[in-house]
Design a protein around this nucleic acid. Structure first.
Length: 713
DNA sequence: CAGAAATCACTGAATTGCTT
DNA sequence: AAGCAATTCAGTGATTTCTG
């Protein structure tokens, strides 16, 4: 071992000596070495004081921040000047490169080197100081090159306040104090720290806290004095707005809880299994148990609205998922808060009373029978049920008022907001409805009122005579898509704006690809719309446009420098110095090239860049926010794999949601196809105010509305 | 002067937790 | 995620000193 190293050493030595003409005689003058030894001593002294004064908390911190003259502080620029000047001088004084830097240092005439506010002596001090920060085992030119790479932060060593030792470090100090003379291994420290009693730990924590406060004070002062080291970052604000607000779902909270529990019991528990298990378990939880998590989720998303608002201001084209609770979850919470169940309709009451006679039939047949019998009822018979329904409704109103009274101020405000939203939606839907009626050449029925489920819920409106009319109108309306939307909107705590047309206007047609928000998931279970395939086909092309920009962090070659430090000295120094300087430019160009390639790949045509920028977040959002993944999944990687098979399937659930049709018709009327397809029932069963009875009796294709009414309970 | 031994300077590993 | 905070030891390589 020894012989091996010695031969290597001698070989290197020979190289040096062969070029070097004189023996290193005047080493006394070599500043770095002297300084180094001095520095080490000084450091050791400082350490000693640190160690010994572990009882006196404030002492070490004060040492960290020496009062200093401003001329002691060097900016990056000044350091660069200094290095330039020394390098300039160097070749004039020394011919060869293969000279120990110590020798070179003796030849430098420091009186001629000066960088503005600093005296020559300070320059010399700074330079030697800098050299200490790089491996000293090389020639001066090499060291200068290396010194250029010294981080600016390093320039402030001794001036900048030091980080206070962490709690753990404080413990280490204490431990070493107690185990002086013994060989302490890192692992011992770790073990000891973990088994530290709370009391002792607190002692160290308070000690740390004190030092930290001091450190922050000193840092604030330091930052004021060195503004160039801490340039004001202008992007921080933007960053907040750029972050897509994330929804914390109740399920996530529940699964996290399960995970924590399981891992505490068994460290090696299968995480994915726990996660999957949690999903299933949560769904089967009883409402009361679910409630806890729902409430927790609501709490966790308290500031979501504000964040979404900020985000949307910055990114108006994007959609943000802000639905915390799905419809069922919301109902559970509402029920827990005392919200009364919706009043029974006359038909519902009738069918319930009738149910006992039809138990032998399947539910489907039961419904059919019910409908037929209901149709067959005489008006007077029906009025009986209507009366009951009215009573039910009045009861409901009472309960509802009580419920609102018992709500907290926040919750009431939330409700008010919903009301507003619903009103807007209602207006929208009536407008659409009227349009539709006129289109179909039916006499428009003046005041159609909202025909809205939720509205009748929020603002109960009671007028017996119109009851039947309303009912019938409602039936027709519910068949026609828009009416269902307000109910869904209720779930959206904050209604995210639909994609505005301007961004789309550039692109060809693309009807309304407003990939409906997460409601879709809820919806797809409920509405088995027969229009699926045709609509989904339409939607397909849109994701193709989304071009993901491959965001790859360029790996920074860091340690290479360090390693070179030692290796370069072994090889011929002149070579390595050249290598370093030459090797740099290519690196830079590489990075530039990479950047170019990324930008160009993401945007083949120059003005498509904008599109990319605006579209990318949408895909992102979908990925994170909405649980209905498929669309976004393939949207995020359309380049890699064109999946023509997947896309239609993926688009299905989205298109099936009635919300999409809502947005489509709200933005423009350019799609008669869609609306017509969506409302086949409306076509079949025309209704006028005058022909109420007809409408009531006509409701043959009522399985739709039937199920709807059932859902309403 | 060559080679061995001593010395110096530095790095990395080890620990945990905070800051950037 | 990297860097830094304190400290020590082991290892490595360059330099210096000593010896024959």
């Amino acid at each position: 071992m020894a012989s091996k190293s010695s031969t290597a050493k001698s070989a290197k030595k020979r190289k040096h000596t062969s070029v070097e003409t004189d023996n290193p005689v005047d080493m006394e003058d070599c500043q770095p070495k002297k300084k180094k030894s001095k520095k080490k001593k000084g450091k050791k002294d400082a350490d000693k004081t640190l160690g010994s004064s572990s009882d006196v908390e404030s002492a070490p911190v004060q040492k960290l921040f020496n009062s200093h003259d401003d001329s002691e502080i060097w900016s990056n620029d000044e350091v660069k000047q200094l290095l330039d000047k020394v390098q300039e001088m160097y070749p004039a004084n020394l011919k060869g490169h293969d000279v120990s830097y110590r020798r070179s240092m003796t030849k430098i005439n420091w009186d001629t080197i000066m960088v503005e506010p600093h005296s020559p002596a300070q320059c010399k001090a700074k330079f030697t100081d800098l050299l200490q920060k790089v491996n000293s085992l090389r020639t001066l030119p090499e060291m200068i090159t290396a010194a250029r790479k010294v981080k600016q932060a390093a320039l402030y060593v001794g001036v900048k306040p030091k980080l206070p030792p962490s709690v753990f470090m404080l413990y280490c100090q204490d431990y070493r104090e107690r185990h002086k003379g013994t060989h302490i291994q890192g692992i011992d420290l770790g073990k000891g720290y973990r088994s530290l009693s709370e009391k002792k730990k607190k002692k160290f924590e308070s000690q740390y806290e004190e030092q930290r406060v001091q450190y922050e004070k000193q840092m604030a002062e330091f930052k004021l004095k060195n503004p160039d080291m801490y340039p004001v970052k202008t992007y921080t604000l933007r960053k907040v707005a750029d972050k897509v607000p994330k929804v914390v779902y109740p399920l996530t909270l529940y699964v996290d809880h399960l995970m924590e529990k399981a891992l505490a019991e068994n460290k090696d528990a299968d995480r994915t299994e726990i996660r999957n298990h949690g999903k299933v378990k949560f769904a089967s939880l009883k409402p009361k148990k679910q409630q806890k998590w729902l409430e927790e989720a609501v709490l966790a998303n308290k500031d979501l609205e504000a964040r979404v608002k900020i985000y949307l201001e910055k990114n108006p084209e994007n959609k943000v998922n802000s639905v915390v609770l799905m419809r069922n979850a919301q109902r559970i919470l509402e029920k827990a808060r005392g919200k009364p169940e919706k009043p029974q309709s006359a038909f519902k009451i009738f069918s319930q009373q009738n149910a006992s006679q039809l138990t032998h039939l399947t539910t489907q047949l039961q419904r059919k029978q019910n409908m037929e019998q209901w149709k067959a009822l005489s008006l007077s018979e029906r009025v009986e049920y209507e009366k009951q329904a009215l009573q039910d409704k009045m009861d409901y109103e009472k309960k509802y008022r009580l419920y609102v009274q018992n709500l907290s101020a926040d919750e009431r405000a939330e409700l008010e907001k919903k009301k507003e939203q619903n009103k807007k939606n209602a207006v929208k839907s009536t407008e659409l409805y009227q349009k539709r009626v006129t289109e179909l050449d039916f006499s428009p029925n003046g005041d159609h009122h909202d025909s809205d489920d939720e509205m009748s819920d929020v603002i109960p409106d009671t007028q017996v005579p119109t009851k039947i009319i309303l009912n019938s109108a409602k039936k027709n309306a519910t068949k026609w898509s828009p009416t269902s939307s307000p109910d869904q909107e209720q779930m959206t705590k904050i209604k995210s704006p639909k994609k505005s047309s301007p961004s789309k206007s550039k692109k060809p047609v693309l009807p309304s690809p407003s990939t409906s928000d997460s409601l879709s998931e809820d919806d797809k279970e409920q509405s088995p719309s027969p229009t699926k395939p045709s609509v989904s086909k339409k939607v397909v092309p849109s994701p193709k446009k989304v071009v993901p920009s491959p965001k790859k962090a360029v790996p920074s070659p860091k340690k290479a420098q360090k390693r070179k430090a030692s290796s370069s000295s072994s090889s011929t120094s002149s070579d390595s110095s050249e290598e370093e300087t030459v090797a740099q430019p290519p690196k830079k160009t590489k990075i530039v090239a990479k950047r170019k390639s990324t930008s160009s790949s993401s945007s083949s045509s120059s003005d498509s860049e904008n599109e990319v920028l605006t579209q990318k977040p949408v895909a992102k959002h979908g990925k994170k926010g909405t649980p209905s993944v498929p669309v976004t999944k393939e949207a995020s990687s359309p380049v890699k794999t064109k999946s023509p098979v997947k896309t239609p399937a993926a688009a299905k659930p989205d298109s099936s949601s009635s919300d999409s049709s809502d947005s489509g018709s709200s933005s423009s009327d350019s799609e008669p196809e869609k609306t017509v397809k969506k409302s086949p029932a409306a076509q079949k069963s025309p209704f006028t105010t005058s022909a109420v009875k007809k409408v009531v009796s006509q409701s043959e294709s009522s399985s739709d509305s039937d199920s709807d009414s059932e859902l309403d309970t």
